[in-house]
Amino acid sequence: MKIGILGAGEIAHEMAKTVAGMEDCEVLAVGARELLRAEGFAKEYGIPRAYGSYGELVEDKEVELIYIATPHSHHYQHAKLALEAGRHVLCEKAFTANASQARELFALAEARGLFLGEAMWTRFLPMKAKLQQLLHDGAIGQVRSLSASIGYAISDIPRLREPALAGGALLDIGVYVLNFAAIALGEEIEKVESSCQLYGTGVDACESITLTFRGGRMAVLHANMTALSDRGGVICGSEGYIRVGDVETCAPLEVYDGERRLVARHEAPPCHSGYQYEVAAAAKAVREGRGECPEMPHAETLRILELCDRLRDAWGVRYPFE
């Protein structure tokens, strides 16, 4: 699978390193807003082609799959550019700034017969499947609630403070705890409650979110871009609980019984990068002629974005381009 990386920022570097360690994929080209930057990126990773514009990249007919690594404020624009050029697309999370943009892109991809997916890496990891299997098998009885917190002291990063770049904690890191809740509790949300502390520029700095699912199951979530947290989570059941070391990676998983005794511990399998799973899934979908990945289908991307829209509306957070 010949991949083109659109953007040359931090996450693009991680993807270039990831694909370099894969046997059946290669980065054929990289595109940046400046040719010198693209050439420097290409030289660092041994990428054959460098383009000084995104338009040139997507017009390279030998590139099969475009990975979009720009800020999520620009995902809609850049995914549309690639789709209209006839390229399959794997787009970094958050998929778009809002659900409306995502619906339009999914409709365009379907009309063109192209693959389009969100690179929410948590959904593709082996430990996500392991966690769901434990819950399905009744390792802790009936799941009744969960809690999760994610926090990074990253408010000094300019793009995260900027409304025009869809800044704030929710779309950058809050989506991880929302996806974690979805992985463990499903999609049947009946009630959403939240509170938010705004940054001086008007974006969300930290938030507390309580989701009530069918049957009274609850998820209590926290995201913060001004302070660190352990990124941990706890899933509580009628016969025990599972402690999740990192909700982004769903690992390690520690299973405790009704007496709070540790009865099992599951570690993530060794790998050179957790991102290879999403790339492999996207490449497989393209080869099989499918428009989406079962790990992160279009409907689930839309559901999470609709929830984000609902939360931002309650907080009064709106981006200038909306």
Rank of each mutant, 00 (worst) to 15 (best):
Gly237His: 09
Pro294Val: 05
Val234Thr: 15
Ala282Ile: 07
Ala251Trp: 05
Cys250Trp: 08
Leu253Cys: 08
Arg260Cys: 12
Val279Cys: 15
Ala268Asp: 13
Lys284Arg: 11
Cys250Thr: 08
Glu292Thr: 05
Glu259Ala: 10
Asp257Cys: 09
Glu288Gln: 13
Glu288Ala: 10
Glu254Ala: 07
Leu302Asn: 00
His298Phe: 03
Gly289Phe: 02
Asp246Arg: 02
Ala268Phe: 03
Glu278Cys: 13
Glu288Ile: 04
Ser229Pro: 03
Thr301Asn: 02
Ala285Asn: 05
Gly240Lys: 06
Cys308Phe: 01
Asp309Val: 00
Asp230Thr: 09
Pro294Thr: 04
Gly240Ile: 15
Pro270Met: 06
Gly233Ser: 12
Pro294Arg: 03
Arg261Asn: 13
Arg265Ile: 12
Asp313Met: 01
Leu253Ala: 08
Thr301Ile: 07
Tyr275Ser: 07
Val255Ser: 14
Leu311Pro: 04
Cys250Val: 09
Val286Gln: 05
Pro252Val: 08
Ala283Ile: 04
Glu259Gly: 15
Val263His: 11
Ala282Arg: 07
Ala282Gln: 06
Ile235Pro: 07
Val263Glu: 10
Leu307Thr: 00
Val234Arg: 14
Tyr241Glu: 14
Asp257Asn: 15
Tyr241Thr: 14
Glu259Asn: 15
Arg260Lys: 14
Arg261Ser: 15
Gly291Arg: 03
Glu254His: 12
Ala280Phe: 06
Tyr241Ile: 13
Ala227Cys: 03
Ala314Thr: 04
Cys236Gly: 08
Leu302Ser: 01
Leu307Trp: 00
Gly245Glu: 11
Ala314Pro: 02
Pro297His: 01
Glu259Met: 10
Leu302Gln: 01
Arg290Trp: 11
Leu311Asp: 05
Pro269Val: 05
Arg231Cys: 06
Val255Gly: 13
Pro269Ala: 03
Lys284Trp: 05
Trp315Ser: 00
Cys271Trp: 11
Ala314Val: 03
Glu267Val: 00
Ala251Val: 08
Gly232Cys: 10
Pro270Gly: 04
Ala281Leu: 05
Val234Tyr: 07
Ser229Met: 05
Gly245Trp: 12
Arg290Met: 12
Leu302Arg: 00
Ile304Ala: 02
Val279Asn: 10
Asp257Leu: 11
Pro297Ile: 02
Ala227Arg: 09
Thr301Cys: 01
Gly245Leu: 12
Arg231Met: 05
Arg303Cys: 09
Val263Tyr: 13
Leu228Asp: 15
Tyr275Arg: 13
Glu239Lys: 09
Arg290Thr: 08
Glu292Trp: 03
Ile235Ala: 10
His272Phe: 06
Glu288Phe: 01
Ile242Lys: 04
Val279Leu: 15
Gly274Asp: 10
Ala227Glu: 07
